[in-house]
Structure formats: C-alpha cells, structure tokens
Computed example of a mutant assay.
Amino acid sequence: MPKSILTFIAFFLSLVIHAQYEKQLSKNISLSINENFETYFFAEKLAVEHIGYYVFSNKDSRYDHQPLVSHAAAHFMKWKDSDVILKIAAVLGKLRPILNDNSQILEYLWYCKSFPKTGFKYSVPKDIAIKDPVKYPNAEVLVQELTELLNDFYKQAQVGEYIRQNKNYYQGAMKEAAKDIAVKSIPFEEKWYGKKFLGYIFILMPGMPITEGEDNYRAFGIQLETPKGKMPSMVFSSSVMIPKKENLSDYKQFGFDNKEVTKFLTVHELGHSFVNPLLHDFKKEIDRDTILFTPKLKKHLENSYINNWDNCITEHLVRLGEIRTAKLMNDKTEEERLRKEHTVTMGFVLLPFLENHIIQYESDRKKYPDFRSFLPLLFKSLDTLKPEDIDRMIVN
C-alpha cells in the first residue's frame, strides 16, 4: 500500500479516536478524555514498581475499586522492566521531591500535541508552573524529557490501540459525568463575577489512581491559554468505588456517576478561575490582615485543609460566589444547602459577614460592573475586623 494512503488512514483514525472522546455540552463547554494524560498515568503506575510511589500511585495498591486503573496496570505490566519505563521511573524519581505532585506535569502535557505527534498545539505560557526556577528548580528540563519518553511508551506499548479497544468504558465514563456537570450554572457565574471566558474544558481521568474509600477523588483546575484567550479547565478522577468484575467490558458503572461531587467541581472549582487571578493584585490587602487568621479560626478550619489567611480568604470568596450564584439563579434550595454546607459544616464563618457586604455589589452593578471593582471595598470592610471579632463568629 502506498505510504501516502497509510498516512491518510492514520490521520483519519486519529480524528475518529479524538471524536469518540470529546463531547460539546454547550457552545463553549466541552468534556473530553486526554490521551496524553491517560498515557502518563499508565506509565506512572509502572514506574512506581521501581520507585515505590508517586502521589496516589502506589506499588502495593491493586486499585480494584478503579476498574480502568486496575485493568490497565495488568495490561501494561509486561512493560514494567522495559528501557522506556526504567527511564520514566528515573525521571519521576528526580521530579518527586521537586514537584510533590503531578498536576504540573499534566498542565504541560495539555499544551503538547496528542501522542504520537510531537511538538505543541499551543504555545506553552511563560508563567506555567514548571518554568518557575525558584519554586521548581530543573523541573522544566525533566518534564520535557519525561514527555519524550511518554511519547515513546505510547508508541511502543500501543497505548492508542488500548484506548480504542476500551472505548465503551471511556464513553460510559463521559456519559456519567456529562449528565451532572452544571452547564446551566456557568452563565450565571459569568454574570455574577462580571467576567466571561472563551470556553470551559472538563477533562476526565479514568486512568488516574485514587486511594480507596468513600468520598475519595481528586480534581484540580488549570487556567489554559489559547491563541484566542484563556480557558478555565477542570481535571478530575473517578469518585465512586466500583466493585471488581472479571473483564473491563463487564462494567455498567464507570466511577463518575456522582451528582454531588460533579456539580461541586463544576461550580466551586471553576469559581477559582474567576477569583484566584484577581487576588494577585490584592496581596497587600490580604497580607495586611493576616492577624485575623486566629489560632481559633485555624483550628476551626483544619478539616477543610485551610492553613493560612491567604487560603482562608480565597476559599471564602469562592464559596461566597457559589452561594450568590445559586441566589441569582433563583435556586433557593441550592442556595440554602450551600450556605449551610459552607458556613456550618465546613466552618467558613466569615460568609455571613461577606454576604451582608456583597449585597451592595449586587444592587449596583452599574457602579460595580465586575467582582474586581468591588474587592477594594470588601477588603476595606474586612480590615475593620479585629481578631476577637473573628473568634466570636465561631460557635463550637
């Protein structure tokens, strides 16, 4: 067969593969599976056979509660001692003490063309995490080396073929998640914050290992940059423990049928895309009031993993946006549920104070067209508080 025909067939199959794992939920909201991410997690699971662990990949864990993780590990285990996996293990061994995570690796992989292609689909931003030489010394060089090795593994182990063979599982996972992503809430978030993005990307990671146990899952947001503008994304693992079956094709549940978690990720984590960039310009105001993060408040928020005033303010503002977005949608039930969940259950005791002040923002959007324009007043109000005022808000 002529080489040109083979090239065309390969190109056509590539288009078909990616079409199978990408779904438009609305005009500017998409849901997809990223083959580069899946390749990374398949390889990471093999690498930990040599280095013990990396984040939630652990040599001694079977991951029977995550069918695809368990099945893929068994399928690719014959590559465990291959030259490419040994090299990947060595690179991850060097990256582990530098990054302490793999989210920075995935962020870089998103900008890369889908394996087996090389190069980038979009220019890698100058401020991407791995390019920070102070916080992550030598990470950029190591991640670049890792990417080349992952591409080699993709080709040698025929990862693309494995993903195609299990398309029913991937499509089932996407179907489960798609029904619970709160597509209707995003325009209301945009309206409340006074900010619109080019689009929103949700990426499922069925191959990402998580620790067994109820309410265990992992997710993180990445602010992606394209030639047309910034696009917030949400990357998340399965969140439902699935009983083990003999074959991957036997599963009718895929680990993403979790309305509460999926909706939370949609609204809360995307809320960080609206809030976090704004706070870089208010570092002086935030640092000014660190005294308000009293020992009593720190203790009260420890179950929510809040360990400093910066995180405390960020999480309060994102949760404020959640509650007020629900109010804007006239969803009284969700508004009250969120208010109780965040204020009482999670311990974010500043929310009543913030809600009282945010009414001014909501009632005069001509004067305050976006959330950023109101933040100076909000920080000014916080500055009137004293540590004892904070402690009085806490009811044990």
Rank of each mutant, 00 (worst) to 15 (best):
D364Y: 05
I242G: 02
A10P: 01
C112V: 09
I9W: 11
L15P: 05
N168C: 06
I286A: 07
Y251A: 05
K184C: 02
T294G: 03
K80G: 02
Q253F: 00
H272I: 09
K296G: 00
K135C: 03
T262S: 08
D127P: 09
A219S: 15
K259H: 03
T7G: 07
Q223W: 04
A90Q: 13
P277W: 12
L317M: 07
N28A: 03
D310Y: 09
A43H: 03
P232Q: 03
I29K: 02
Q20A: 01
Y122C: 07
E145V: 01
P369G: 05
D389Q: 03
M205E: 14
T345C: 01
F42Q: 06
P232M: 02
F379M: 09
L317I: 08
N303A: 05
V235K: 00
D281E: 15
P369F: 01
T7Y: 06
I306M: 03
Y54N: 08
R339M: 09
D250P: 01
K184V: 14
V16H: 08
F220R: 11
K252H: 15
Y193W: 14
D250A: 00
K340V: 13
E260S: 10
T266W: 00
H50A: 00
L68A: 08
H357R: 12
T262V: 15
L270V: 02
D81W: 06
L328P: 06
T262C: 05
A139R: 09
K191E: 13
E22S: 13
E148G: 08
I181N: 03
A10G: 06
Q66T: 12
V134F: 02
E148Y: 00
P227K: 04
I186M: 10
Q158E: 15
E44Y: 01
I242Y: 03
G160A: 05
L106P: 04
R62K: 14
S57K: 04
P209L: 00
T343P: 12
A90H: 13
A89Y: 02
K195M: 10
K191C: 00
T333S: 09
E322H: 05
K117L: 14
L150I: 04
Q165S: 12
D127K: 15
A47Q: 04
F293C: 11
G194R: 07
L142R: 10
L6V: 08
T345N: 15
F282V: 13
F56E: 09
K327L: 05
E44R: 10
S238L: 06
E355T: 07
L95K: 07
F37I: 06
R62F: 08
V395M: 11
V344C: 04
Q360N: 10
T147G: 06
N308W: 04
F264R: 15
S123P: 11
F11L: 13
L320K: 12
V235D: 10
K155Y: 00
S82H: 05
S82G: 10
N247Y: 02
P232F: 00
L292R: 13
I88P: 05
L15H: 09
K117P: 06
I130H: 03
K3I: 14
A74H: 13
L68M: 15
E161Q: 14
F379E: 13
A89C: 02
H280G: 15
